[in-house]
Structure formats: C-alpha cells, structure tokens
C-alpha cells in the first residue's frame, strides 16, 4: 500500500513532459553505453556518433516538425513524400534546367510551404482529420515525384557538389586510424542546420506565445479557445511549420545523398513519428519536448546501428526494429497515462 502511494505521488508530481523525457534520455544513454560495452569497436569513436548525426540530420528536422504538429494535437504523414518531392525537384532544377543552388533552396522551401499552407488550411479551417489530409498529401507528393521525373539520377552540378562535399571539422574529436594517420572528426552542413533548427524551435516552443499556444491547443482545444487563443490559426501554423521543415529536411537529405529519386525517404514519416513518440511526445497532444525528439532520433538510429552490428543487417530488420520500438513506446505511453489518470482521480 505504501509503495503504491509513493508511486502515485511520483506519477502526479512530475509533469507529463518531464516524465516522458526522462524515460527517453535514460534509455538512450543506457543503449549507447550498452553498445560501447558489448559491441565496442565503432561506438567508442566520436565519429560514430557524428555519423549518426550526418545520416539523420534530415530525420531530425522532420521529426521536430512532426513533434510540433503532434503537440498541437495533429499528425502529418506527408513529410516523407515532401522530402522525396523536394529532392527530385531540386535535382531536376540543378541538372536539367541548369538552375542555381540558391534557386534550388528556394524551391525546397516553396514546396514545403505550399504543402503546409494547403494541409494546414484543410485541417484547421475546414476541420478535416489531419490524418486523411496528410495521407492524401503523402500520396500526392509521391505521385508528383514520379510525374516530375520517373528515373532516379545523381546530380552533376559542380556548385552543388562543392556544397555537398563540404565538411565541418570538429577539433579534438578525431582518431588515429590503423595506418597511423590522424583522421579529423567531421559533420556535414545539414547537421548544423538541424542543430540550429532544434535550438531555434525549442526556444519558440518554450518561450513564445505561439509555442505555448501549441501546447494549449493540444492539451484541450475547447479550453484553449476559452482562454482566448486563436485555435484555428495555431493549428494552421503548426502544419505550416511542419511542412516547411519537411521542405528544409528535403534539401538536407538531398545534400546528403546528392540524388533525386521517387523512392527517397520511404517511410520517413514513420521514423519521424516514432522518434517523436520515443522522445516523449504524446500522440494525444499537449505533451512533448524537442530535446526529447532529438534523443528520440538518436535512440532510433543507435538501435538500428546496434541491430546491424549484431549481424542482422538484412533490410527488413530496420523496418521491424522501428515498428517494434514504436509499438513498445506507444503501449508504455498508453499505460503511463492511464495510471496517471487513475492516480489523480483518487
């Protein structure tokens, strides 16, 4: 009985956001340390960590967008499609139309913004289920990608390639390889973009009226309205931000792979949702933290690395791993929240 009471007080005192965030951070460190201890090798080198960042910069950006939509009570599964569409459009612009790098960046932003405006309008002002809207968005983006150009191809534009091969050296984190040559640790430009966006949006969510509005609307839409928040505009903006971020992520992804293809970023929406949920964003809205989302992405990719290091490197293991992680965390969320509700009631 005593233990039960103590538990319920922990359940009730810590805020929803913190309890889920703590779980995530603990799990990430446990996993990473476990990987170092049991699999050693690559995990001991800082570059391993930077490679995770390099490979997942785009995912980080889409995930924070996803978190924002989810915090305000919505969902957007079109992000993967938008990433693919952006990569294809930019590739076509650079190579076939002879466009500039700056122009391709504008295209990426424009596509993201357009998806955001349309989807946001349909969800917020016409009150259509976000899932259906973004499901259509996803199919539209994927279909459009093939309409723009059917075959995948690598970009040859010199200006772009220079940008693509830019490396940002992290001093003091390098290692000496087998031949005795010191190799610098580096990150790609996309990582910097991702980190800047995480910090920027973290600040927005924590300290601005709009950011707090996302939480209020996700917590209780009716109450938020009564408290004088413009609910429609807030929901609209959450979708605009998410899709614009997906556009930026598309460019970062494009910068990482250097090609356009309709099969790019397949299932990225799923990874973004999984990262958000693992990072402590509640599916039901109102609870979440972008730092948690960042850790969610890192956890997800770390476990993928662990799985492939363990010799299970067939492609299907990735899908199964992510799906089971998502499943476990969804169930944990559901149970934690039910218990909390019960603890508060009594």
């Amino acid at each position: 009985m005593g233990a039960e009471q103590k538990k319920s007080s922990i359940f009730t005192k810590v805020s929803d956001t913190n309890i889920l965030l703590t779980i995530t951070i603990v799990i990430f460190f446990a996993m990473y340390i476990g990987a170092i201890l049991f699999q050693g090798g690559g995990f001991t080198k800082p570059q391993m960590f930077f490679n995770i960042l390099n490979a997942n910069a785009a995912l980080i950006i889409t995930s924070i967008g996803m978190s924002i939509v989810m915090i305000s009570g919505g969902i957007d599964i079109s992000v993967g499609g938008v990433v693919a569409l952006v990569s294809m459009c930019c590739a076509v612009h650079l190579d076939m139309k002879g466009g500039s790098v700056f122009g391709s960046m504008l295209i990426a932003l424009g596509i993201g913004l357009a998806f955001g405006l349309v989807q946001g309008f349909l969800v917020a002002y016409l009150d259509i289920q976000p899932f259906i809207v973004s499901l259509a968005g996803m199919f539209f983006a994927r279909g459009m990608t093939t309409i723009v150009n059917t075959a995948p191809f690598n970009v040859a534009n010199e200006e772009f390639k220079a940008l693509m091969n830019t490396r940002i050296i992290i001093p003091g984190m390098g290692y000496t390889n087998r031949k005795g040559i010191y190799v610098d640790a580096y990150v790609e430009p996309g990582v910097i973009v991702a980190i800047v966006l995480v910090i920027l949006l973290f600040v927005v969510l924590r300290w601005t009226k709009l950011g707090r509005g996302f939480y209020a609307v996700g917590g209780n839409r009716q109450s938020a309205l009564m408290l004088g928040i413009n609910v429609k505009r807030t929901r609209f903006l959450s979708h605009v931000i998410c899709s614009t971020l997906a556009g930026i992520a598309g460019y970062v992804y494009f910068l990482h792979v250097g090609s356009g293809s309709a099969s790019h970023a397949m299932g990225m929406e799923m990874n973004a949702i999984a990262s958000s949920i693992i990072g402590g964003t509640m599916l039901s809205g109102g609870v979440g933290n972008l730092i948690g989302t960042l850790f969610g992405v890192l956890s997800l990719s770390t476990i993928q690395n662990i799985v492939s290091n363990a010799g299970l490197d067939q492609a299907w293991w990735t899908g199964i791993t992510i799906a089971s992680m998502l499943c476990i965390f969804l169930v944990i969320q559901s149970i934690v929240m039910t218990r909390r509700k019960r603890a508060l009631k009594n």
Binding site: I77, G267, M270, W316, G319, I320, I322, A323, C327
Partner: peptide, 10 residues
C-alpha cells in the same frame, strides 16, 4: 502505421 511499416519486412 506499425504494421504498415513493418509488414513488408515481416
């Protein structure tokens, strides 16, 4: 969405 992603892998 879980089976949507994992299904083809399974």
């Amino acid at each position: 969405l879980i089976l949507f992603t994992a299904g083809r892998s399974i």
